[in-house]
Design a protein around this nucleic acid. Sequence first.
DNA 1: CCGACAACCTGACGGC
DNA 2: TGCCGTCAGGTTGTCG
Length: 270
Amino acid sequence: MPELPEVETTVRGLRPVLEGERIDRVILNRADLRRAMPADLGQRLTGATVTGLGRRAKYGLIDTNRGDTMIFHLGMSGRWRVDPLEPLAHDHLLLETGAGRSLALNDPRRFGSVDLWPTEAIAEWPPFAALGPEPLGPDFTADHLARAFRGRAASIKAMLLDQRVVAGLGNIYVCEALNMAGIAPQRAAGRVAAKRLGPLVDAIRAVLASAIEAGGSSLRDYARPDGELGYFSKQWRVYGREGEACPCGGLVERRVDGGRSTFWCRRCQR
DNA sequence: CCGACAACCTGACGGC
DNA sequence: TGCCGTCAGGTTGTCG
């Protein structure tokens, strides 16, 4: 499930459980996710106190007082459960705090990852090295997109999914933002008029912000054992809505690009 | 540079 | 009821 808003919602749900708390116990059921967890993960985390939590792109960050940051990615199917009532299949990592709270990282498909890296050098963690700007941060601007898109024949959808261009967008929110901005997903990035890039930046920010708000509004529910996120799906304009009406009154169509579904409206997206 | 495709995994769902 | 094909929010690599 997780694109940027879901990871942000997850981090916000973990924060009250972990921040300032000591990790008393680490149970590693299986370390072979998409990339293997560090062999000494349990040793390095046990007894550490969590000093803060954050997010970069689709990665969650858990800082400790030992100088390590735990970096987790939820892949396609990852989720944290808070104070789970019972174990589930695919609970790969369990944490217990000194306050008696517990967390379970569950990921059936194992496309996620967990790593540890020195907090002071977090920007040099290899997957972070080439990431583009945060879409909700100050460096994500129309000028940035203009530079990234200039002369490029690749589709704008492919460019927005490229984490080097902007970090944190996935298939759902790219479809949503392009619909909101009225841009056809298959249009060559270099052929999007400069004056349309400001509205595109605004659309991306708006769709992410409302998705985070939707997650945030159900944060109370997050701390349930089922780990439900309060997903944004009810508010999707086009994603998963093939054959239904676009907000403009046109018809939502589905096409496949690079093996992934694209939902769009040919009436309002040009 | 670019698009297509496969690989990594499991689960949900629809059709028959 | 069960079996089978299809599809799924991500990332990374290869091929032509």
